Structures are given as structure tokens and as C-alpha cells.
Amino acid sequence: MARSAHGRNSAAISGVSPLRNARRSIPATLEQVCEDLDTRSKEDSSGVTPSMLSGWELGKHITSIKYRKMLADYYAQPPEVLFAHQDQQLTAASETPRLLVGHRDLRAAMTEVVRDASQYLAVVGSRSRDATYLDAIEATLAQRPELVHYRVLFGPPRHQVLKDHLLRLVKIRDPHDRSLGLKTLHIGIVEDDPGTPERFFCASESTAVVPVPSLTSSEAFDSGVLFEAAVAERLIDHARQLYAGARRVENDQALRGLPTVRS
């Protein structure tokens, strides 16, 4: 489908995102845009579905860099214009982050994120070794079978306690089970790459904790920032995107094959 020059120059319709306005200005349906993107793809499949595109247009989900470039090329508009409605959500939020200082406060906040999660729980990083925190994750997953959990490692586990935790997770819940209509346990590893910095956070649909460099000691893990729903939802999307590009380690054999950096 040819793109319309009118679509590149039309003013945004009040109450409609620039991304949706660009599609309507062609005009094209969600399905037609996805078909066009598939045709342009070298693999004959862009990976974009009508429901994904609708979610991006409505700002319900955040578009990754890969798809931002794809859609910017398709609509011939810069990403900062097409995706302004997504990026402005954070700067417009009235939430006030809370600084956490001290191991007890940091652990308590992360544990509370886990225990309060009812829809999603995303945990990213390879250095977890706090037994209380890891036990809380296991208990929450056992108690709430419908809770969707993402666990993304950056390189192999740094400690045996984390590897043992992952092994227990696949015993608590089968990552391949779809009895509730969807996959509820996702475990992946981003292979060691100097160009891919490790990330750390724990997020539910309502709150998130992001550890930061210690404010008390160069060796401590005791400082972080507590965010509310607007940021937490972004981090859930962040974890989804990480998992999409990660290597799956979702059975006992794959997890046992992971080395540990430290005992």
C-alpha cells in the first residue's frame, strides 16, 4: 500500500495519537498496515500484529526501538513525532519516586513489590542472592497461578542461590503450561555481551524498585528508587522486550547447564 503524502503533513487529530493519526491519514486498517510491514520484511513477517499496533497507538504498550524505526520508515515521519504520546506519559506523570537507603528498606520494598503483584511480576538481573526476597517470589507464584512472571538474566547467575531459585520456579510452575490460556512463566538469559549493560529491577503492574549505586558504601547493595504504576508498567514492557530477544532457559536441564560465577 502506498503511503500518502497527506499522511506526512496532516495535523494531529485532537485526542488521537500521532501514530494512529498517521495510519488513518493514509487511510489504512490495522490489518493493512501489518500486511504492508510483512511485505517489506526480509523474512516475510515483521512480527507486528493488529493487536500490537493498536496497543502502541493507544499508548497501552511501549514500542521498542526496532519497531519504532520500522514504523517511522513506513509512515515517513520521525520517531519523536510518531511516539510522542508514549514518551510524554512519563513526563506528565504526577508520581513522586521515593529514595530507598539501607539494605532493610531496599529488601522490604522489593519484597513488597513481589507480594503485591497480582497480574505481572518482572525481575531482571543475575545477582540476586537474598533468600527472603527469593522465597517471597516462590511463595507468590505458588499462591497465584495466574500471575505472569518474567525472569531475565544478564549472563549466568552470579550465585548458586539464584540458580537454585530458578530450578525451584520450574518445579512450582511449568513454563510450557497453557491451562490458563497463556504462558505464565518466562525465563530467559541475555548472553554476556560487553555492549549490553546488565539491568536490575523488580516490577509489578503497580510498583517497581530499581537498585542504584550504593549511597553508603562502594561495596554495599542497599540503595534504590521506588516507582509507582506509570514507571512500573514501562518496566514490565522493558522485561517483555528483553525476554523476546533472550535465550530461553525454561527446563531443569537448561538451568542446570548454566554455570555460576560464584558459589
Results as ranks from 00 to 15, higher is better:
T39N: 09
E80R: 09
V114N: 08
Y75L: 09
P18L: 10
Y74R: 05
P79R: 09
L19W: 02
E35M: 11
P27L: 06
D44E: 14
R23N: 01
G55Q: 12
L106K: 11
I62Y: 15
E95L: 03
S17C: 03
G15V: 07
M70Q: 15
G102Q: 11
D36E: 08
E43D: 15
A72K: 08
L100R: 06
A117S: 15
E35F: 12
K66M: 04
S17L: 11
R107C: 13
M110V: 07
G55P: 07
I26Y: 09
A92C: 10
L58R: 13
S25G: 02
V101L: 09
S64Y: 00
T96G: 08
I62Q: 07
S17W: 02
D38Q: 07
P50M: 11
D87V: 03
D44C: 05
R24A: 05
S17A: 05
Q89N: 02
L53Q: 10
M110Q: 13
I62T: 14
P78F: 00
M110H: 00
C34Q: 11
K66S: 09
A108Q: 07
A84Q: 15
M52A: 03
S54P: 08
V33N: 03
S118P: 00
L82Q: 06
T96V: 13
S64M: 06
E112R: 10
D73V: 03
F83C: 05
M52I: 07
R40Y: 04
S45V: 04
Q77F: 02
E95D: 15
S25P: 01
L19H: 00
S17P: 04
T29E: 00
W56M: 12
A108I: 00
Q32K: 14
S45D: 12
R20N: 14
G47D: 00
D87L: 13
A72Y: 13
L90R: 10
E35P: 01
G55V: 04
L58K: 14
S118I: 05
P79L: 02
S17M: 00
